[in-house]
Design a protein around this nucleic acid. Structure first.
Length: 585
RNA sequence: GCCGAAAUAGCUCAAUUGGUAGAGCAACUGAUUUGUAAUCAGUAGGUUACGGGUUCAAGUCCUGUUUUCGGCACCA
């Protein structure tokens, strides 16, 4: 996907196109008022106040036509400089522009741009003439809160994108079409990964046999990695008394985003939204010597969060999900080393999946937001400076993001670009000085004194659910052999003559722990091959006279045309190596 | 949650201005016995998401709920 924002020429073009959109909207809806129309990675948008009027998806066509008409007239785009007083006078009847002007610093050069009958306050720059805006497309329309605040009124937001030439525009539109085929919700249905049902509820997916297999394999994969690094895995209940979250501090911050209280016999329970408090209690269960730290407690744990209905999406954002969670209890002098180990694990896992981090984000608190963040300046400064120093020592390049920290501490987020261009956080490592205080965690140091450990919260695959969504979109559903629910599909050419040999091979592969199916239905070979391919099974074996007489198998890889014939032992050795290597497609 | 759009057979989709709910695939039965992406014929399959209303008549119009989709806000 082309990032419009990073391309200077296209940025100017798209921003000019936003003005063209506004002009067309003004022609069609004379009462329209305009807020802002910025360039974004995916093109541009404009936020519009239409009063009682609504722009619907179908209306985009006529707006586009009006834009084309204006473009054909080919008016020049004229820049004009204004003083603040002049600007206030010029836009005196437009509350949105007055809002913008009044919020500008004294002495800022104010400019506006005019094209034909339309003038808009704007910093620019713009292209010379609207004539050059020909290859654009309006993509979608939605509501958007004024100034991004859900307490404010909703404006209409129209999205579009503009290119230099129609070839680029068309290839972009093709890419958008391709994204629909990659959507994990579509693939999840087609490949029998998961389903949902309104009787179960929103955001509560049911994992079908194929999906459950992938789920289990990923759990086993990461658990093994973690075990080799000294993690200790536990199982803890998916609920607790509300008291636990009052102790941890989560209650004050998140009680509205939890499933509601369950009350019985005077006790109050909630479904857990995270695992930290349970793990803190496990740490506290025994005395710890400074010699035994770090202690790494891991769990593949199901959590429950009452996500806003509009936020729920397939298995990417759900109301119950399985976190690949762990809490590392370290001495202050071990923070750097342990942090480095987490980053190394992330990189190791990404290498296995052929993934790359888009960028690393150091998420810091917003000091002015006293409501969200635990109020202890000293603690925050210490935590943020420690984390910054650790990252600098490790030589990790990062972007600092104010207001992205957890309420209890700063974190390193590893940002990923999904195959359809969405930025998402999968892996995270967070530094927490607060939980040890809240739970009064200690270890005994060399002089016999009780000291506070530091907690690192970390997730590598993030949630298994979201990771599978990511993988499906990345691979278009053709999972690598080691993760494929069915790895080998056997098709005997003739049911009668070749079934016995096919069964023999089937048993042999099964005994070698290969996930294999035998398709001995009374259907034509072409029919069964087609189904094998659409199910995206990595290996399809064709067994007929030739193979049977020579003790061979012929296989065809998913998406490939050619057939390769190997001796059966050779084939098993070959596929076994591929599975163990966790080779990517 | 907010602004919009949508929901028809297991799946993908049809159904003039309100006037008898259809097709392909899948399933089932039979025929066919096949060397790399769909063999032929037949059978069955529906309170049109759920509830209420308007109408002689509702898949179609109005309304409430649920779910899905595009965004916004949120994301410990």
């Amino acid at each position: 996907m082309k990032n419009i924002k990073e391309d200077e020429k296209l940025s100017i073009m798209n921003h000019s196109c936003a003005h063209l959109l506004a002009q067309a909207v003004k022609h069609l809806y004379p009462h329209a008022l305009f807020w802002v129309g910025p360039v974004i990675e995916e093109g541009f948008y404009y936020d519009i106040d239409l009063g009682e009027d609504v722009i619907k998806e179908d209306d985009l066509v006529k707006i586009e036509q009006e834009m084309k008409k204006i473009s054909k007239d080919g008016k020049r785009i004229v820049r004009e400089e204004l003083t603040k007083v002049e600007a206030l006078e010029k836009f005196k009847s437009d509350p949105y522009k007055l809002d913008l002007i009044n919020n500008m610093e004294e002495g800022t050069l104010i400019t506006c741009y005019t094209q034909g009958d339309f003038t808009d306050l704007c910093r620019g720059p713009h292209i010379e003439t609207v004539k050059d805006l020909r290859n654009f497309k309006l993509l979608k329309v939605s509501g958007a809160y004024f100034k991004g605040d859900s307490k404010n009124k909703v404006l209409q937001r129209v999205y579009g994108i503009c290119f230099d030439n129609d070839t680029e525009l068309n290839s972009h539109l093709e890419w958008l079409e391709d994204c629909k085929g990659r959507d994990h919700r579509k693939l999840g249905k087609e490949l029998g990964i998961f389903m949902s049902h309104e009787l179960v509820g929103l955001g509560l997916p049911l994992w079908l046999p194929n999906g459950a297999k992938v789920f289990d394999l990923l759990q086993a994969y990461i658990r093994e990695k973690e075990e080799s690094l000294g993690y200790l895995h536990v199982h803890t209940p998916c609920m607790a008394t509300s008291e636990l979250y009052k102790v941890s501090g989560h209650w004050d911050h998140y009680k509205d985003d939890m499933f509601p209280l369950m009350e019985r016999d005077g006790e109050e329970f909630v479904l857990r939204p995270m695992n930290c408090p349970h793990h803190m209690l496990i740490y506290k269960n025994e005395l710890h010597s400074y010699r035994n730290l770090p202690i790494r407690i891991g769990e593949l744990a199901h959590d429950y969060r009452f996500e806003a209905s509009g936020a729920v999406c397939g298995i990417e954002r759900v109301r119950t999900f399985c976190q690949n969670d762990a809490h590392l209890y370290v001495r202050p002098d071990q923070i750097g080393e342990e942090f480095a180990a987490v980053v190394a694990l992330i990189q190791d896992v990404y290498n296995d999946f052929g993934m790359e981090a888009e960028y690393y984000r150091l998420s810091l608190r917003d000091p002015s937001d006293k409501e969200k963040y635990f109020d202890d300046d000293e603690m925050w400064n210490k935590a943020e400076n420690t984390l910054r120093a650790v990252l600098d020592t490790l030589g990790i390049k990062y972007v600092e993001a104010i207001g992205e920290a957890a309420f209890y501490g700063p974190k390193l987020d590893v940002q990923i670009k999904s195959a359809i261009g969405h930025e998402l956080t999968l892996s995270t490592c967070q530094l927490d000085f607060l939980a040890p205080e809240r739970f009064d965690l200690t270890y005994v140091d060399e002089s016999g004194e009780k000291k506070r450990p530091v907690v690192l919260h970390r997730a590598i695959l993030g949630s298994i659910d979201r990771f599978i969504a990511y993988l499906l979109e990345k691979t278009k559903g053709a999972l690598p052999v080691w993760l494929a629910p069915t790895q080998v599909n056997i098709i005997p050419v003739n049911i009668e003559y070749h079934r016995e040999y096919a069964k023999e091979i089937y048993e042999l592969l099964r005994n070698n722990h290969i996930r294999v199916e035998l398709d001995d239905r009374n259907e034509k070979l072409g029919y069964r091959m087609r189904e094998s391919q659409t199910r995206k099974i990595p290996y399809t074996l064709i067994l007929g006279d030739r193979e049977r007489d020579n003790g061979e198998v012929s296989y065809r890889l998913h998406g490939k045309e050619e057939t390769i014939t190997l001796g059966i032992d050779e084939f098993i050795k070959y596929i076994d190596i591929e599975i163990k290597a966790k080779k990517n497609n």
